[in-house]
Amino acid sequence: MVRQTLQEETKAAVLCWLATISAKGTPIVSPKEVFCLHASNLLTIADIASPVSVRNVRGNPNVCVSYVDIFRQRGFKFVGKARIISPEERDFDTYGDALVNMASGAFTIRNVILVSIERVSRIRAPSYTFYPDRSEEMLMSSAYEQYGVKPIH
């Protein structure tokens, strides 16, 4: 069930946020548009225009990735170790094919950032805690109104 929830919620998120550590020890967070859960313990992220993230991962593999479905107001945080897989490496197709398909030719995938997930934790908006009597549908309706959008059914 957790695996199915992870897959579903990963697909529903538009961006993930990759936190890396610079050579000076400064945390750097940047958005990533093309990513997917490759396995229950592996997350793949496309390096489309991420030279700083790639450099940081090569220097220090410790990363944190988070994403939230803004309408459901929930998501996940992953902590783990990352490595860079370049197109010349034999693992590139194994881990990069899904990302290339997701990009649909709109972006060139320069590298794959492969995150080995060590810890997973759920992210939930405070509304889930402060308004436990509200259904997810009610919370989503409130989010649609707040962002000024209408769901497509």
Score class of each variant (00 low, 15 high):
73 Q>D: 02
25 G>S: 08
15 L>R: 06
28 I>N: 14
72 R>I: 07
18 L>V: 07
67 Y>T: 06
10 T>G: 14
89 E>H: 14
116 S>H: 11
100 V>N: 05
142 S>E: 14
85 I>P: 01
117 I>H: 00
126 P>I: 14
147 Y>A: 00
145 E>C: 03
124 R>M: 13
65 V>E: 10
131 Y>Q: 15
82 A>H: 00
151 P>A: 11
2 V>R: 07
29 V>M: 07
23 A>E: 10
51 P>M: 09
4 Q>Y: 03
37 L>R: 09
66 S>D: 11
47 D>V: 04
94 T>C: 03
3 R>I: 14
75 G>L: 08
58 R>L: 11
119 R>D: 07
26 T>L: 13
108 T>A: 14
77 K>T: 02
107 F>M: 11
93 D>Y: 07
63 V>C: 01
87 P>W: 11
82 A>T: 07
134 R>G: 09
9 E>N: 15
90 R>T: 15
134 R>D: 08
87 P>V: 00
127 S>G: 13
84 I>A: 05
137 E>L: 10
58 R>Q: 03
47 D>Q: 00
124 R>W: 04
21 I>T: 06
36 C>D: 08
95 Y>W: 01
84 I>Y: 01
46 A>G: 07
85 I>R: 00
57 V>G: 05
7 Q>Y: 10
92 F>W: 09
56 N>D: 10
6 L>T: 03
31 P>R: 07
95 Y>G: 01
18 L>A: 02
118 E>T: 04
13 A>F: 10
140 M>C: 02
101 N>I: 00
135 S>F: 05
37 L>W: 01
102 M>E: 14
30 S>Y: 00
32 K>L: 02
72 R>M: 14
106 A>S: 01
25 G>V: 04
117 I>R: 01
122 R>K: 14
80 G>N: 09
56 N>V: 11
35 F>V: 02
95 Y>M: 03
72 R>A: 15
97 D>Y: 13
149 V>T: 10
113 I>M: 00
15 L>W: 03
67 Y>S: 08
149 V>W: 13
101 N>L: 11
133 D>I: 10
6 L>M: 05
68 V>C: 03
17 W>D: 06
121 S>P: 02
29 V>I: 05
50 S>Y: 03
92 F>Y: 07
82 A>Q: 08
14 V>D: 12
60 N>W: 04
12 A>I: 04
36 C>L: 10
84 I>C: 08
148 G>N: 09
86 S>K: 08
39 A>Q: 15
103 A>W: 07
19 A>R: 06
27 P>H: 13
126 P>T: 08
83 R>D: 05
